[in-house]
């Protein structure tokens, strides 16, 4: 009996349906919570850029924003490529 259960559990752990359920739980929770979605990201990006531009000249095309959703937390990663020359000049002052 126990052996059977063990096999059943082992099978379930690898089944594609279980993976599907986990993927959906993460997604649906985020969809329902509404505000946590990345809908504010365009505005956030624009404002971040404005702040950075006060100090350094940056090319808007050189900004990379990544957003990775996880079950417990999400990670927002903002990468701004700064032109070396400008930065060096600023730092020297």
């Amino acid at each position: 009996m126990r052996l059977l259960e063990f096999f059943r559990l082992a099978r379930r752990r690898t089944s594609s349906a279980e993976t599907a359920k986990q993927r959906l739980q993460v997604l649906v929770a985020l969809d329902r919570s509404g505000g946590v979605g990345p809908d504010f990201l365009p505005l956030l990006q624009r404002e971040l850029l404005d702040v950075i531009r006060k100090y350094v000249e940056v090319d808007p095309g050189r900004v990379k924003i990544d957003f990775e959703r996880g079950p417990d937390c999400s990670i927002l990663e903002v990468n701004v490529e700064l032109p070396t020359q400008n930065l060096a000049r600023r730092l020297a002052v």
Binding site: V26, L41, P42, R46, G61, V63, F67, E68, R69
Partner: peptide
């Protein structure tokens, strides 16, 4: 790739987000 969506088609059309983003 559902966990990697940051910006979308609609952001590119309406919100000034660049395509490569």
């Amino acid at each position: 790739v559902e966990r990697r969506v940051v910006f979308d088609f609609i952001n590119v059309i309406n919100d000034g987000i660049r395509l490569h983003q």
